[in-house]
Design a protein around this nucleic acid. Structure first.
Lengths: 336, 336
DNA sequence: GTAACGATCGGGAGCGCTCCCGCGAGCCTC
DNA sequence: GAGGCTCGCGGGAGCGCTCCCGATCGTTAC
């Protein structure tokens, strides 16, 4: 019932507390004989050092903080996995803060990071966070932005070129002869979405006869997509877009389902491009053309940048790494 | 750059350290005047108490540990959300350990729970964990099993009746006239899968002329499903099952995709029932009949049981709560 | 033989906070 | 008006560990 402390190990091994600490943490400072004795005593007693005490004294937590907008999105789940890869290679653990699309939660997490003294933070910002990030920096906690770029240029970042992604998607539709495009996105205040729209606009601007209609939706769940698809299906064919760029695969798959259930053919009547290339894109009713982002690789790169910042000179400018997206073409845009 | 400590707040408010601690944590013990002074001093300085120090002294972490088999599975993601609901209502945070189908990771997480002194643990066991769970109990950390039942009857638990789920699925197929059933599941060593098979067997046993073929696959990703579907499609129609119970929706959706791509009709040639009722089940190419488990509710219940155990008398027997699954019927089993 | 030195080990301060306890001041009771 | 009681506040120990520094001992050089 009583916790096993370093004191108990010391007693059992017949050495001092200091020696136990040294034998366990810096064995090269202690004779081999004692290291063995201490280790076996610790094993026998099942000694596990108390994180809080270690951290209080040492001032380090061995933790990397990471916030993501929504872990249920496989894109972010992959990003986290990549960051964990890099962190565990450096002997650190990742403390995950899932914001679930909630700005307040996101801020809470940054506060938690300070409270538990994370050694660095990977932040995938959702709402405006300037003051909070400044604060972390003020406390000497390095920050790397993920899937975002710092406007002020102060913070290093790893992100995707979402303008290029939006453009890629729209150009693909234009190339296959579509002219009445629409962009369906979640809330305009999300940067990624804005930029994808901007990219689509750039592509359309090259084709004088083409149009682009932006459509906004509140949430990005698949049932919203279904409702939207049914809504579009209700429009007269002439009024209906013949090519859709959708900011998210969940939404896109639902939307295609809604369209088809109302007799609109995909891709014959409407071609659809999604975004993220989630697992289900390939096995949807109509396999979905989608813009793929190397999420895991990005998570890993970001964590490595953060680690460099933690370990090395604080002043090094790591810059902004930008990944370019890739279009995965499937049936939802194949010209019949 | 320097951290703001309780000392700084005390100085600024012109009171003692003890009073700051009391004003912030037990304001009813301090005069209103001083509480205000302390609070505003803390705000101005941006004081955030150090978790490690609080915890070391107080012996409590304010954390609930929770391990899940794989957070990428929406079923578990919902379960976690439910647990978080209950925990935050009680002022506790959830420390999530995602095992990603890795037994070693699962054990690491239990060790971490001890290291950070979680006040209780919700464990959704994957591999055999007896010794580790015993150890936690020995340390006075209450444990509630989630999606599992303790064979020894020592630990309270919240789970689903997977036998009933498997039976429900198979009976539905039998009722619609299917007789050559197959059960496709991941690794036989997972209890949930074994029990679902067992349930299906019970249902089949009631129909002398019906057969059930168990088929095992290593992983449960959707691409495995596709491959499997193609494999089944290659069998001669007479040799092919006409009804499938599949232990997982990811696998099921992939499998249906594979079947259809090879010209086998669903549900006309083969009817398919999945398990978990994930978001995509409803919008798959052929909407998937699936066994639904109220994951979020279960997570909440489990956390509430744990909280009761933490707060209340340790000896109370909370028993084993078992939820009954529900069949959601969709096109993949609709008789034409 | 002695001094100097390196290699090991132990003593003990102290990380930032919580919480027990003691002290003083005001109030009530008779 | 004196004693006792309550209430509000501050002093200070100590949570379990790390890490600095001093003590000890064996060894080598002279």
């Amino acid at each position: 019932m009583k916790r096993v402390g370093i004191r108990d190990v010391a007693q059992r091994a017949g050495v001092s507390i200091s020696t136990v600490s040294n034998a366990l943490n810096r064995p090269y400072m202690v004779s081999e004989r004692l290291v063995d004795r201490v280790r076996s005593a610790a094993d026998q007693l099942g000694y596990i050092p108390l994180q809080a005490a270690q951290q209080l004294r040492a001032g380090r937590s061995g933790l990397l903080g990471m916030t993501v907008i929504n872990i249920a999105n496989p894109f972010f789940a992959d990003m986290v996995a990549g960051a964990e890869d890099a962190a565990s290679a450096a002997g650190l653990r990742v403390l995950l803060g899932n914001s679930s699309d909630d700005i307040a939660k996101e801020r809470d997490h940054l506060e938690l990071f300070e409270r538990v003294q994370v050694e660095g933070a990977l932040v995938s910002p959702f709402g405006p966070l300037e003051p909070w990030l400044q604060r972390l920096r003020g406390r000497g906690i390095p920050v790397v932005l993920v899937d975002a770029i710092d406007d002020t240029g102060e913070l290093p970042s790893v992100s995707f070129d979402d303008v290029a992604g939006g453009r890629l998607a729209a150009e693909h539709l234009l190339a296959s002869g579509r002219r009445r495009l629409a962009f369906v996105g979640a809330r305009e205040d999300v940067r990624q979405v804005r930029e994808r729209l901007q990219g689509a606009r750039l592509a359309v601007a090259d084709h004088p006869e083409a149009t682009l209609e932006p459509i906004w939706t509140e949430r990005t769940t698949s049932d919203r997509g279904v409702a939207f698809g049914e809504q579009l299906a209700a429009r007269s064919p002439a009024d209906r877009p013949d090519g859709l760029v959708i900011s998210n695969d969940h939404l896109a798959i639902g939307l295609v389902h809604g369209l088809i259930s109302r007799g609109v053919r995909v891709p014959e009547d409407v071609a659809v491009v999604g975004y993220d290339d989630i697992e289900f894109a390939a096995i949807a009713g109509v396999p979905l053309t989608s813009v793929r982002q190397p999420a895991r690789e990005m998570g890993r790169t970001a964590a490595e940048m953060l680690l460099a910042r933690i370990g090395g000179t604080a002043g090094v400018d790591l810059g902004n790494v930008v990944y370019r997206p890739e279009l995965i073409v499937r049936a939802s845009t194949m010209s019949a």
